[in-house]
């Protein structure tokens, strides 16, 4: 599929989830992969890129049942990016919806 489009959709979905609350990698990939035709592996690379772009940051939380979990937190830049993306997406759906 079109890489740019896929990238945009994935970024938006991941950031929108993180807007609700901080999540660790596994639960985030489970949530996204239950709706999108995408493998968990690809999502880790999306997360890595979002982190490189400073849209998300990470911190470790000790877990009683195993190794420490790395949580993802959306940054102020990430929030702005998510809001702009969501607006564009809604416009797109509304306009195409009128034409279909």
């Amino acid at each position: 599929m079109d890489a740019q489009l896929k990238r945009g959709v994935l970024d938006l979905c991941v950031l929108s989830q993180l807007r609700k609350r901080d999540m660790y990698g596994y639960e985030l990939t489970e949530t996204i992969a239950s709706e999108l035709e995408i493998t968990a592996g690809t999502l880790y690379l999306v997360l890595k890129r979002l982190k490189d772009n400073a849209y998300v940051e990470t911190y470790l939380v000790e877990s009683s049942s195993g190794p420490a979990r790395k949580y993802y937190h959306i940054t102020p830049e990430g929030l702005r990016y998510q809001e702009a993306g969501k607006k564009e997406w809604e416009q797109f759906v509304e306009r195409t919806g009128r034409l279909l």
Binding site: A3, K6, R7, L10, A33, T39, A40, G41, T42, Y44, L45, V46, K48, R49
Partner: peptide
């Protein structure tokens, strides 16, 4: 569930 490691890695450049 993680998907083919080669394809996952291709995603880096693609994405």
């Amino acid at each position: 569930e993680l998907g083919d490691p080669r394809e996952a890695a291709e995603g880096i450049t693609e994405l």
